[in-house]
């Protein structure tokens, strides 16, 4: 089976600024691939290239088996796009939008209408009537946008920071929709700044910085890549944080708000007993003590810092 998305050595320059600097990406069919990176890492540029909106300078991009440069029409037939900004007509109503897009996908007038109704029902927008999209809440607008991306049940769906600017409820709604899509066999490429989002949704993750992939793997693999387990010590007394940080092995980080010291460990059990002893000897009272895998946040900071160095 061929891969749904193949990106090889893609470069895109704006003047003398490089937005994509040799980007490589392979996404297997029917999987969710997370593209994770800070602002300005080139995530949106990459999506725009893959969705035929932007022409790259160098490299090869194949989406759903077709070259985005020479077979843009074929690619467009097979993709859906949810960009960062709502790509719907804000002056019109939800149904008007979906029906218009359905016609433009050449479903025919009648099928466009029934498809619009199906999607409105599925995304819980059936009662919006003629209300203009500009009067929708952020979550509703995103759901309509997502509905518009799914009119033809695309093989590949691009989601560019799908939950940016949404409240927790809107975010949960979008996540639920994405999960149900994946069950139906759609390949999803998702860009995000939220590590939790990639952790929750993506099968594999590419960490992107300065226009290229600096790490790739499953969430667990990426976590393992950055120093393995960590020990967290939560104290009653915030004044003792610095003292505890000096007792722990390795480079400890201090979170004053949560009264927590965190440090990398190699041997889980040995680290636990040693820490308990050290705390006892120093006469420090711990409220909580735990050993855990690093969060993607830590992995991300580690990777981007390493890359910058």
């Amino acid at each position: 089976m061929t891969d749904a998305i193949v990106v090889e050595g893609v470069r895109k320059r704006y003047g003398d600024k490089s937005a994509l600097d040799g980007l490589d990406l392979t996404v297997a069919r029917g999987t969710v691939h997370g593209v994770l990176g800070p602002n300005g890492a080139g995530k949106t540029t990459a999506v725009r290239v893959m969705a035929t909106l932007l022409r790259h300078d160098e490299g090869v991009v194949r989406v759903a088996g077709h070259d985005v440069r020479t077979q843009a029409g074929e690619v467009r037939r097979r993709i859906g796009l949810l960009g960062q900004h709502a790509a719907v007509d804000e002056e019109l109503g939800g149904r008007q939008n979906l029906e218009m897009f359905g016609r433009l996908y050449h479903l025919g007038a009648r099928r466009a209408g029934t498809r619009a109704d199906e999607l409105l029902e599925r995304f819980d927008l059936a009662d919006t009537g003629r209300k203009a999209v500009k009067l929708y809440s952020g979550g509703m607008r995103r759901r309509l946008d997502l509905a518009a991306s799914l009119i033809t049940e695309p093989e590949v769906l691009f989601l560019d920071e799908p939950t940016t600017g949404l409240d927790p409820r809107g975010r949960a709604e979008v996540w639920a929709s994405v999960r149900s899509l994946v069950g139906a066999g759609t390949t999803v490429l998702l860009t995000t700044q939220y590590l939790e989002e990639a952790d929750q949704l993506a099968d594999r993750i590419s960490v992107v910085d300065a226009g290229r992939v600096i790490a790739e793997g499953t969430a667990d693999e990426l976590k393992a890549k950055t120093g393995g387990d960590r020990i967290d010590v939560v104290l009653r007394d915030a004044d003792r944080l610095a003292l505890v940080a000096s007792l722990l092995p390795g480079e400890a980080t201090v979170d004053t708000d949560r009264r927590m010291v965190s440090a990398p460990v190699s041997d889980r059990m040995a680290a636990l007993t040693e820490t308990v002893r050290a705390l006892e000897a120093a006469g420090v009272e711990a409220e909580d003590l735990s050993i855990r895998r690093p969060t993607l946040d830590e992995v991300f900071l580690h990777l981007t810092k390493e890359h910058a160095a």
């Binding site: 960009g83 900004h85 790509a87 719907v88 007509d89 996908y105």
Partner: peptide
Amino acid sequence: NKGVIDRFRSMPMASSA
């Protein structure tokens, strides 16, 4: 300058339409 243009451009419609 509207977002909807991106959707039009990513669809298999006649680009001059």
